[in-house]
Structures are given as C-alpha cells and as structure tokens.
C-alpha cells in the first residue's frame, strides 16, 4: 500500500515532468505488478494498455490511476488482462477529468509567479513551479489509495459520480483547455496584433486545413516551416527595399 502510494506519486510527477516516459502504461503497470508481487501479470496488463494509449490523440491523458487499478484488479481479483482493463475503465475517466480539472485550477498559481517575476524572486518562482506538481501528485495518490482500499464500493461511487456529476468534471476539464484562449489573447494584446492580424488568420487557416487532412501530428511543424518561410521572404523584401533606397532613387517598377 505504502509502496503503491509512493509509486503513484512519482509516476504522476513524471506525467508532466522528468523524462515523461516512466508513466507510460507498459512501464507503470510492470512497476505496479512488481510491487504487488506479480510482475508477469503487470507486464501483460501494461502491454495491452500501451496499445490503447498509443492510439490516443491527446498526449496529456493521465493513465496512472487507470494503470494501478487495472493491475490491482488483475492481480488481486484474479481477472484476466482484458477484463481487468475493461473493469478499470471508470478510473481512466476519473484520472482524465481530475487531471483536466486540476489543469484549470493550477492557473491559480499564476499570480504568485507574476509577483515573483516583479520582485525577481527566483525562490518563490521555483515554489510556484513545483507546488502545483506536488499538489497534483498528492491528489492522485489520495485517489489511488481510496480506490485501492475502497475496492468495489469506491468503484460504484465513482460510477455514480460519473453518471450524475460527470458534466461538472467535463466542464472543468473543458475550462482548463479553453483558458488557453486567454493566454493567447494576452500575447496577441502584447504583440499589438491589429497591424499584423492577417498573418494570424493565415496561420489559423493553414492549421485548420492541415488538421482536417488527418496528418495532425505534423501540423505544427509544417506551420513553423511556413512561418519561417514567410519571415525570410518578408526580410529579403525589406533588404531589397533598403538597398534600392540607399542607392538613391526609387526602385524600378518595370
């Protein structure tokens, strides 16, 4: 139990920081299997879950809770791999939305970070960076402990929560994503977007075009290439203008 709690704590930290590979289901489930004295079953559960997660679009899905409960069900209740993964699905839901809601709430640490920036206080900044991570890891540790000790009754509680208050969790998670719009708006204000709003619209249009073709993994990369091309072209255009102006007279128009 204590070992599971420590593992969940570390893996939740790894989900957003460190190497960001330790929390992958294949590794996480094997580790939980080792702790629960059945590494073989842990590895088998991990392999099956890894396949599910590999196809997931969102790279920030939190599978730590899902991993631990699937392994617990497989080892302690003696379920076979696929049944355990299916039975633990409700914890995938809990992990995903708890993570999303926490992302929304972590914005509460921004005022602290801004204050630290005004005062050039590096220690306080480090605190504003580490604290949300530790709080999130603690939250998931508590959830995992509840799930582990609560057993069947906790699972039914979560299921009924999903049914009745699922929209609140989904709303908070959506808020966590939608808040980025404010982050973008602040940059747009500070770079005085009005004069160059055409480039913004062009970028959005290009990204929308590429996203709909389905090769979404490379969208940002392709857009970045286009952006650099745009900047290089604009820069060379100006270089020609200034060179002509230095020579004297206007540039030839014919």
């Amino acid at each position: 139990m204590a070992l599971i709690a420590i593992l969940v704590f570390i893996l939740t930290l790894d989900q957003s920081s460190f190497l960001r590979v330790l929390h992958r289901p294949l590794i996480a489930c094997t580790l939980f299997g080792i702790v629960l004295n059945d590494p073989a079953k842990g590895a088998a559960v991990g392999a099956a879950m890894e396949l599910i997660v590999l196809g997931a679009e969102n790279r920030y899905v939190n599978t730590v809770l899902y991993s631990v409960m699937a392994v617990v069900l497989a080892v302690q209740s003696g379920m076979d791999v696929n049944t355990a993964i299916a039975s633990a699905l409700v914890f995938a839901w809990l992990g995903m939305y708890a993570d999303g809601a926490f992302t929304a709430i972590s914005a509460a640490f921004l005022p602290m970070a801004r204050k630290a920036a005004e005062n050039r206080d590096e220690k306080k900044l480090a605190l504003a960076n580490i604290l949300p991570g530790i709080l999130k890891a603690l939250l998931f540790t508590v959830l995992a402990c509840l799930a582990y000790t609560g057993g069947e009754s906790f699972r039914t509680t979560v299921s009924s929560l999903e049914k009745n208050a699922g929209w609140v969790m989904a709303g908070l998670a959506a808020a966590g994503s939608l808040m980025k719009c404010l982050g973008f708006a602040v940059i747009l204000r500070n770079i005085q977007i009005r004069e160059i709003s055409g480039a913004l619209v062009a970028g959005a249009a290009f990204a929308a075009l590429i996203v709909t073709t389905g090769i979404s993994g490379a969208t940002l990369l392709i857009c970045a290439m286009l952006a650099f091309a745009l900047a290089a072209y604009d820069y060379s255009l100006q270089a020609n203008e200034t060179a002509a102006a230095e020579k004297g007279g206007a540039s030839k128009w014919w």
Binding site: E57, F184, L200, V201, A204, F206, A207, A208, C223, A231
Partner: peptide, 29 residues
C-alpha cells in the same frame, strides 16, 4: 545588421504561429 526589418518579419512569423497554435493546441475542445 537590420534590426528594424527583422522585428517586422519575426512578428509576422509569430502571429502566423499563434494562429496555428490556437487551432492545434485546442483540438481537444
């Protein structure tokens, strides 16, 4: 060498990328 021109070019690229990021990073909503 031409700091002033560079500002305009890079601002254009930045605005372009912010437009792209709004679409890509918000796909989940």
């Amino acid at each position: 060498k031409k700091k002033k021109g560079a500002v305009r070019s890079i601002r254009l690229a930045g605005a372009f990328m912010i437009g792209a990021m709004i679409i890509v990073n918000m796909k989940d909503v």
